[in-house]
Design a protein around this nucleic acid. Structure first.
Lengths: 259, 259
DNA sequence: CGCATCCTTGAAGATGCTCAATTTCCGTGG
DNA sequence: CCACGGAAATTGAGCATCTTCAAGGATGCG
């Protein structure tokens, strides 16, 4: 994500940092946890070696052992249908958790793969569960993050249900922009670690439509795209397209896809 | 839901029953909780008077105080955009929880309204949170239900992103069928407590399209519809359309809407 | 330097939407 | 009890958006 320069810096810095020193701790599980308690959380977390682009963190059907927090890089989660087709369900940036959808029945319903070199913190679920029982602040933050995930999924559902192709792409870009901004990166200039195909799949569009939309938005002066790099030239207008008050809620139109 | 006869019975029966006697306790929060502990959960639950069709349980923006379990009847949750349009986010049947999307920031992002006379259990969140810290089995079940919600929302996202209109409606009907079945009702014959407009809105389709699809599916011998009542005549084929192995996962096609 | 992958662009066609007119249903009041 | 009015649902016709199919161009890696 963002320039490869800052990506490298993040990767190196956060390779083994404890939660208390991690720059993401105000977005992640440690939020709201007192220093003393944080050490106990820290103790159950396993900071894995970086995983390479294309490498899987887990696959659909794998038994559920842990949830993961992205430390650097980015992931994609996707479902696989019986005929082998995949449906992209989300993209995860540093500070975001993956795997919470597996709690309910001990098997992962999705696969998670690295879109670029990424490092993650592995948080064994059984340990997290018992520690949660002892630390109310941890329990609270875990519930908050799951609630957040529900809310984000609902927002995505709304985008898919009621927005046109152009609005969907705008909403997607604004969502990324906002999340990068929260993480200290530029909200107007960032790298898309996922392919056009992934974006299209995620947004329920054809790959060609996404490509055409990028071209159209470029021609309309909304953004500049060069391969993976995007610069939002008119974030305001993109927000309008996305139906968001810029930064949070999107909803906007009646129903159906067309405007 | 189902016939008005059984609906009346359910309403009366469950008006004030404790969790341990509630027929829904194997689907709801009490699952997996020992009898002794269950009494403590029971003690914090407020069984509200039934709410009438059209009455709101809470509205978008209301401060978050409690989550709710549907005891009888059914609810609809929806978001409202600035221009007043609504986006239906889900339908809740007995044994299902609503309001978990509000935990993260203490305000409800959606509104919840009764689709028919319904009764709910109000579970004050602060009390639930502290009791959760004391009862590992309760904590576990709460996490499981939130995980389930995430998983259900993901399934809905996949339906919206990759299925055609007919497949979406089939997936919707199969989902209802399965949930009714889990609750002891007929999986092939049930009542739709929501309007065609609600179904269309939820599925990201035009109302007219849903109406036409019902007609087409009827002509194809897949189902019988009479106003609110539906009978699935060929559940197998509907499952195929829905892309589900009948009962759980749906995924099926490549991407884009068309087959 | 060449191949494979990803992306872009074009043209034709289909799914599903909008607009609009009826019809059916249900609650309300005479 | 029946009539009436409004809401919900059905049905039809035309059309727009987006998809599919197809080919060409750019990029990056071995």
């Amino acid at each position: 994500m963002s320039t490869s320069k800052s990506e490298t810096v993040v990767s190196l810095n956060s390779l083994k940092v404890a939660c208390r020193e991690c720059s993401l701790n105000s977005l992640c599980l440690p939020l709201g946890i007192a220093a003393a308690d944080l050490e106990r959380l820290d103790a159950i977390i396993d900071r894995k070696r970086p995983i390479a682009r294309g490498e899987h963190l887990y696959r659909c059907g794998d038994s559920f052992q842990a949830i993961y927090a992205v430390r650097s890089g980015s992931l994609k989660t996707y479902a696989t249908s019986e005929d082998g087709q995949e449906q992209v369900m989300g993209f995860q940036l540093p500070g975001e958790l993956v795997g919470m959808d597996a709690i309910v029945d001990s098997a992962h319903p999705l696969s998670a793969v690295a879109l670029e070199t990424a490092s993650v913190c592995e948080i064994p679920f059984s340990k997290l569960e018992s520690l949660s029982g002892e630390l109310p602040s941890l329990q609270r933050q875990l519930l908050r993050l799951m609630s957040q995930e529900i809310r984000d999924d609902q927002k995505t559902m709304a985008v898919l249900a009621q927005k046109s192709a152009e609005e969907r792409l705008a909403a997607f870009l604004i969502s990324l922009s906002t999340r990068f901004h929260q993480r200290g990166f530029s909200p107007v200039r960032f790298n898309l670690s996922m392919s056009r195909g992934d974006i299209a799949n995620y947004l329920g569009l054809a790959l060609e439509t996404v490509s055409r939309l990028f071209t159209r938005m470029h021609d309309d002066g909304l953004l500049r795209v060069d391969r993976k790099e995007v610069e939002l030239l008119d974030r305001e207008k993109l927000c309008l397209f996305a139906g968001a008050n810029c930064a949070h809620q999107p909803p906007r139109k009646t129903s159906g896809h067309t405007p």
